[in-house]
């Protein structure tokens, strides 16, 4: 069953790159919502900075997706003129930012994932993808260096901070399995040496996350596939609201230069 609108006309490479672009733009949006809302001024800066890294990734992936598609669309056409059913990000990226604990737990889980993922993606046979991954892995290593101490401090800080971390993990647990779910078209790219087998990353990810949280006495089970659908355009209810905000100007005043 394939639910993506127009997905049959799309090449596997286009869908693959577009998915990575959507992941980045959506997470960037959530991180940028922290601007002027963080617990420290230093965190306003840090979270904006990470948001910027992800906007940068989104632009590179969208530009490449547009090139692969070859229909003359731009990065902005792809980001601003597709609907929620056409967005193919993994769902974990789109969940509302929640409290600082939720944002940092999501970031930690994702940083750990991207750290494994991008380390392999730099060897992609597709030169553009490899080059983007090479830039992104440097950022991600730094992001992880920053999210680790946050999770440690909040897990072991006060009872309240610990319970917020535990609650965030509980809320996110249903969404981590999808990170390791391979679509058929993506598997075909793995065979060509272009994409990465995300399913194969799971044992390392589980081990790392459980080890890290375990040091603070927090248990977290193996990732289970629960809620899925992002790569096929089946989202949570949150994405539509996010896009209506993000795409507002382009939708209200179509076809203008900004």
């Amino acid at each position: 069953m394939n639910n993506t609108i127009k997905s049959n006309e799309q090449s596997p490479l286009y869908r693959f790159v577009l998915g990575l672009a959507d992941d980045s733009v959506v997470l960037s949006h959530r991180l940028s919502e922290w601007c002027s809302n963080a617990p420290y001024l230093e965190e306003d800066i840090a979270l904006s900075n990470i948001a910027l890294d992800y906007v940068g990734r989104a632009r590179m992936f969208y530009q490449y997706a547009a090139e692969v598609e070859g229909k003359g669309r731009s990065e902005d056409d792809l980001a601003y003129l597709r609907s929620e059913r056409e967005f193919t990000n993994l769902l974990i990226h789109e969940l509302p930012k929640g409290d600082f604990g939720f944002t940092m737990v999501r970031q930690f889980l994702l940083d750990a994932f991207y750290n494994l993922y991008l380390t392999q993606l730099v060897d992609s046979k597709d030169e553009t993808i490899a080059a983007i991954a090479a830039k992104a892995i440097k950022e991600t290593r730094y992001h992880l260096k920053r999210s680790e101490p946050w999770i440690r401090q909040l897990s072991e800080g006060t009872e309240e901070s610990r319970s917020r971390i535990v609650r965030a993990l509980e809320e996110l647990k249903d969404f981590v399995g999808e990170m390791f779910l391979m679509e058929e078209w993506e598997t075909s790219l793995v065979e060509q040496g272009i994409a990465i087998d995300r399913a194969a990353l799971q044992p390392d990810w589980d081990r790392y996350i459980q080890g890290f949280l375990g040091e603070s006495g927090i248990e977290f089970g193996d990732a289970q596939l629960q809620i899925r659908g992002g790569r096929n355009g089946i989202h949570t209810e949150h994405l539509g609201h996010m896009l209506s905000e993000m795409q507002y100007l382009q939708r209200t005043h179509p076809g203008m230069e900004w």
């Binding site: 733009v25 919502e33 800066i45 910027l52 906007v55 902005d76 905000e245």
Partner: peptide, 18 residues
Amino acid sequence: ITRAPTLRRKAVLLSKVQ
């Protein structure tokens, strides 16, 4: 920031506010 009209504008604005 969340309503910037293009990705470039979004990046520039984020960077500026930062």
